[in-house]
């Protein structure tokens, strides 16, 4: 559907995407990080953040057992705390999709699968398409693809665009998140350009990183991508979601991300339909902060299950 929409769009020349002044972005982000989020707004924000997490395990040593545990945790974040939301999704490799899907049943929690020769993306297109189709066939609700960073850096923007469009088609009903791997793109100008390529090619979400490369989801990068989303929305009327992933492990940083969403793309994006955190340890930090708010006592990790 998005691809049919994109055919009607005027595809811009990606060589001439807007430039970004990095120092200005740093100043803006510093302003956002000086926001003070207290009391009710803090609790509300943290619950919202929990509900936006893509609880993730992407390791070579993952087993069905480990994934089942993660899926249980996704539904029972901390049973001692009443009325907690669940996370948004569980994010796994294609081989684990079936296991996850079964473990999550009708909890409403989505299964996201990485694909396209994640994390490097160094594979021929047919393999990437097969990888994607496999994940979708296994029941994945969402696909997290990686772009071909080498082709992007070599200036082959059409290649990158076509590949995303092809994967989008292979996704069928699954929503497509496009990982830019910003740590390898290096400049914010590149981040902006890659964001536009992904959105015009049909991305439902744009996502910062695989989590395998540092730096990952810095505030500067997420800000740059949010502003690209905002401009795209203003031009086309199409909402695209945002997923910072990698490096967000503290609730304070998560809250600053949410403030940033509020002050850039606006309140409409403050929903797990449009904003996600790709994270593995963020949930527990938020839980500890929530219990601290409730009891007044600073918390220990020993009282919160690790997965």
């Amino acid at each position: 559907m998005k691809s049919s929409a994109s055919k009607k769009l005027n595809i811009p020349d990606f060589r001439f995407t807007p430039t970004i002044d990095k120092v200005g972005v740093e100043e803006r982000v510093a302003r956002i990080q000086s926001r003070s989020i207290k009391k009710e707004s803090k609790v509300e924000g943290m619950k919202m953040a929990l509900n936006m997490i893509d609880l993730t395990t992407l390791e070579g040593k993952d087993t069905p057992g480990k994934v089942k545990q993660l899926c249980y945790k996704a539904q029972h974040l901390h049973d001692h705390y009443p009325d907690l939301p669940t996370v948004a999704a569980v994010c796994v490799y294609p081989s684990m999709v079936k296991t996850a899907k079964k473990a999550l049943g009708n909890s409403g929690i989505k299964v996201a699968s990485v694909s396209t020769a994640f994390p490097s993306g160094q594979a021929p297109r047919n393999i990437k398409l097969d990888d994607t189709k496999f994940a979708v066939d296994q029941g994945a609700d969402e696909i997290d693809m990686v772009i071909s960073r080498g082709e992007f850096l070599a200036g082959n923007y059409d290649f990158v665009f076509d590949e995303i469009a092809a994967i989008k088609e292979a996704c069928g009903q699954a929503r497509l998140k496009v990982i830019l791997e910003t740590g390898e793109l290096v400049t914010l100008d590149n981040v902006r350009r890659a964001s536009e390529i992904a959105m015009y090619a049909g991305a439902d979400f744009i996502k910062t990183s695989t989590g395998k490369i540092q730096p990952a989801a810095t505030m500067q990068v997420t800000y740059t991508m949010l502003m690209a989303i905002k401009d795209y929305y203003d031009k086309t009327g199409i909402m695209v979601g945002m997923k910072p992933a990698g490096g967000i492990s503290k609730s304070k940083l998560a809250l600053h991300n949410l403030i940033m969403v509020k002050e850039t793309v606006g309140d409409d994006w403050l929903d797990n339909e449009w904003f996600r955190f790709g994270a593995s340890s963020l949930a527990n930090d938020i839980l500890m902060q929530l219990v601290k708010q409730q009891t007044g006592a600073y918390q220990s990790g020993d009282y919160f299950s690790i997965d």
Binding site: D21, K22, V23, G24, E26, P215, M219, Q220, V221
Partner: peptide, 13 residues
């Protein structure tokens, strides 16, 4: 005028 310092010691990016 701003100075962009990619990879500089103060850079967070």
């Amino acid at each position: 005028h701003p100075i962009e310092n990619i990879g500089g010691s103060t850079s967070t990016y």
